[in-house]
Design a binder for these strands. Structure first.
Length: 742
RNA sequence: GGGGACGUAGUUCAGUUGGUUAGAACGCUGCCCUGUCACGGCAGAGGCCGCGGGUUCGAGUCCCGUCGUCCCCGCCA
């Protein structure tokens, strides 16, 4: 392999195969850097030694695939290249074969400046040749293998679960797979194998794991792809601590495989504590926690600052930011997104001028050092009105050590600001820079005792915060019982029910989430009742599962971790795309294979599917595939696309600037779908029933593959179809059918 | 669904208050070069300034729309 040769190999014969990474042509002496997965070796071709090979080498271009046989030679001391592992040797070519040529790639794997994502994704096979990508994918393999090996050694079975499964209304949107055999019905791709793994526990496979693809049809982020990989595991009879031990074990193995020695056990923190100290349920422990500095102010100070004295005053300390200019201070304000009456005091100097004693106390309490930035977040006095009204909640919650919604608003606002500030001044405080000490670089944390229920302000009800199979705390069972009576009361005892749920967090990223599950039918019923679900509704949605629970279900629990995120952090990457070989864009498009695409009518018909609304995707995919040189032409009272002009489209009319495009008619049709861009730039698409088509084109006989184009014209509030000189008003008709505005 | 950034040569980018023929670097092509490894030297090719409208005597530059990529909010049990 190209990265393998060492001085000890000197004198040996070797054959290397790989890509031409670089050719340095010095005339009758040519150097070729030959690259494969393992590295780069320099090949020397000397015209004096072999004119034929030299001639062949002159034809080589970047990314040609070649095979070279030659003798490994130690380099002279003066020509050693310390930058590469094979730098002390080179291969003197005695035979050279061009295995394949290459077109000039849009970018080279050896380029130092990164090409834009669009090009990288389109030519992913070239992008993946880059050493960083090779490293990341190899790292991913090593991590996955380490986890498999560890869990297997611990007695876990890797068991596969179906990809084509049942849609559940809970949680994220499902990706659906239509059934041909039973038209009108759909499988769903799993958001996670949650129910199957619990069924496996019921089935007696007491330790299960799987490195498995999951699918969620939600909007993407840098750390969210529509398909992603989970390390999913479940075991019987565990305390949460037992699950944590297993996770700590395989993470240690995974990080070791990546060359990092991490410490276990990870620290643990209650959800409430995480909110109080960090304003978020996935704290980044590398940064300083909040300090509550309400006590540092005198009551009059708070009044003067219009701060609500019954809510916390949070100090955010960002280290080593240094003196900020007026403009820089102003830049902080837009970074703050106030929730529920939270307000910001970004100018600590001014606080110091006005209230020197308070400022001194704050500086002391926060451990402020020279150059540290202090920003305060507090509840505004205006928020006091509704605060007073629910002061009862405040006291009640205080006894439960529970964070109230009002406090949460302050903490959460401060929490996002804390991260934004840390991000903005990352260069200055340097906390995010790797030190090389894994214990400092990777700050793990277990966040535990999540609330069982979340208040939905819109629906005025309590929802399951995790999933409805999460077991509540044994001690909170009584609250659960009484809380059921107050399902639509935001102050319900349900607010204080804790779940046996836990998250594993690394450097502010949620790596995984798990829980001890409910294994008893009676508890499960109570939870469903608490969620306002009747027995019948519950049966309807989770029938098979509830039935399974009744056949001797052992206590069980587990967790699922995002493999992509783990590898991303290990690789030091900013985006999941860097650790997924074939990722999708923010619009869930695969730019290499160009998916998704519209499918033929025949395919849809087989599935019993009728697509009513063709959206942007349809329009784009269909239009883009038309030759650019088409223009509309009218003949024999019909409109055709002809090869004349530059773009597809109709000449702009006075009334409306309309584009139009073809619709491929099926053998049989009940309606046409037309899409039209109105003068306001809005895309209208609507269904045109068959009898209207007949009115417009009386002589028209639908034929397979026949294409028709028409234009929708708008005149004020009236809409017309145009066919030749005829105009057919469809305004009224549109009112009766569904006109869908895109 | 909402907000923001970006789109100029194959690639990364520059392009002034709108004003001659749109530049640089790398890459590419040809020639020269025996110790390079970011090789060097000489010569050269390469542009619907994303697309469509508009304003203007004049648009890469201003306005509107649209397409695409990225980031964020909502969403993601």
């Amino acid at each position: 392999m190209c990265g393998a040769l060492r001085p000890s190999d000197a004198g040996k014969k070797a054959t290397l195969m790989g890509w031409v990474n670089k050719r340095r042509d010095l005339g009758s002496l040519i150097f070729v850097d030959l690259r494969d997965r393992t590295g780069i070796t320099q090949v020397v071709i000397n015209a004096e030694r072999d004119a034929a090979i030299h001639e062949k080498t002159e034809a080589l271009r970047n990314e040609y695939v070649i095979a070279v046989t030659g003798t490994v030679k130690l380099r002279d001391a003066s020509t050693v290249n310390k930058n590469i592992a094979t730098g002390e040797v080179e291969l003197v070519a005695e035979e050279l074969r061009i295995l394949n040529e290459s077109k000039l790639p849009p970018f080279l794997p050896s380029d130092t400046a990164l090409t834009n994502e669009e090009t990288r994704l389109k030519y992913r096979y070239i992008d993946l040749r880059r050493d960083v990508m090779q490293f990341n994918i190899e790292l991913r393999h090593k991590v996955a293998k380490a986890i498999r090996d560890y869990l297997s050694a611990q007695g876990f079975f890797e068991i596969e679960t179906p990809f084509m499964t049942r849609s559940t209304p809970e949680g994220a949107r499902d990706y659906l797979v239509p059934s041909r055999v039973q038209p009108g019905t759909f499988y769903a791709l799993p958001q996670s194998p949650q129910m199957f793994k619990q069924i496996l526990m019921i089935s007696g496979f007491d330790k299960y794991f799987q490195i498995v693809r999951c699918f969620r049809d939600e909007d993407l982020r840098a750390d969210r792809q529509p398909e992603f990989t989970q390390i999913d595991l479940e075991m019987t009879y565990p305390q949460p601590e037992r699950v944590w031990e297993v996770v700590e074990g395989f993470l240690t193995a995974a990080f070791a495989a990546a060359g990092f020695a991490i410490n276990t056990p990870f620290p643990r923190m209650d959800y409430d504590e995480a909110i109080r100290l960090y304003g978020i349920d996935k704290p980044d422990l590398r940064l300083p926690a909040f300090t509550d500095v309400r006590e540092c102010f005198a009551a009059e100070n708070l009044q003067e600052l219009a701060i609500n004295a019954s809510l916390p005053v949070v100090a955010i300390r960002t280290p080593k930011v240094g003196e900020l200019s007026r403009k820089e201070r102003d830049d902080i304000k837009p970074m703050f997104h106030a929730k529920g009456g939270a307000k910001i005091f970004e100018d600590f100097k001014r606080i110091g001028n006005k209230f020197p004693e308070a400022a001194a106390a704050i500086a002391k309490k926060t451990g402020m050092e020279d150059g540290d930035l202090i920003v305060l977040v507090a509840g505004s006095a205006q928020a006091g009105a509704w605060q007073a009204a629910s002061s009862q909640a405040h006291t009640a919650a205080a006894t439960n050590k529970k964070v109230t919604p009002q406090e949460l608003a302050i903490y959460a606002s401060a929490g996002t600001l804390r991260l934004a500030l840390a991000q903005k001044y990352a260069e200055r405080h340097g906390i995010f820079k790797k030190t090389g000490d894994a214990a400092k670089d990777f700050r793990f944390l277990w966040v535990t005792n999540f609330p069982m229920f979340e208040w939905d302000e819109g629906e005025k009800t309590w929802n399951a915060a995790h999933h409805p199979f999460t077991s509540p705390h044994e001690e909170d069972m009584a609250k659960l019982e009484s809380g059921v009576e107050a399902l639509h009361d935001p102050l319900s005892p349900l607010s204080a029910v804790r779940a046996l749920a836990y998250d594993v967090v690394l450097n502010g990223t949620e790596l995984g989430s798990g829980s001890i599950r409910i294994h008893r039918q009676d508890v499960q019923s109570r939870i469903f009742r608490a969620l306002g679900m009747t027995e019948e509704e519950a049966r309807e949605r989770f029938g098979f599962f509830l039935e399974a629970l009744e056949y001797g279900t052992p206590p069980h629990g587990g967790i699922a971790l995002g493999l992509d995120r783990i590898v991303m952090i290990l690789a030091g990457a900013e985006s999941l795309r860097e650790v997924i070989p074939f990722p999708k864009t923010a619009r869930a498009v695969d730019l290499m294979v160009d998916a998704p695409t519209p499918v033929s009518y025949k395919q849809l018909r087989d599935l019993g599917i009728d697509v009513l609304k063709f959206g942007e995707t349809f329009r784009r995919n269909w239009l883009e595939k038309l030759p650019k040189s088409l223009e509309l032409k009218r003949e024999h009272g019909r409109t055709y696309l002809n090869k004349v002009g530059r773009r597809v489209g109709l000449p702009a009319s006075r009334e409306v600037k309309a584009n139009s495009w073809k619709v491929e008619l099926p053998e049989r049709f009940d309606h046409l779908v037309l899409l039209c861009q109105s003068d306001a730039g809005k895309v209208l698409d609507f269904v045109l029933p068959g009898d209207l088509v007949a009115q417009l084109w009386p002589a028209y006989q639908p034929r397979p593959g026949h294409r028709i184009t028409t234009v929708v014209v708008r005149d004020g509030e009236r809409y017309f179809l145009r066919a030749g000189k005829r105009r057919l008003e469809i305004t009224e008709y549109l009112g009766k059918t569904d006109i869908l505005r895109g």
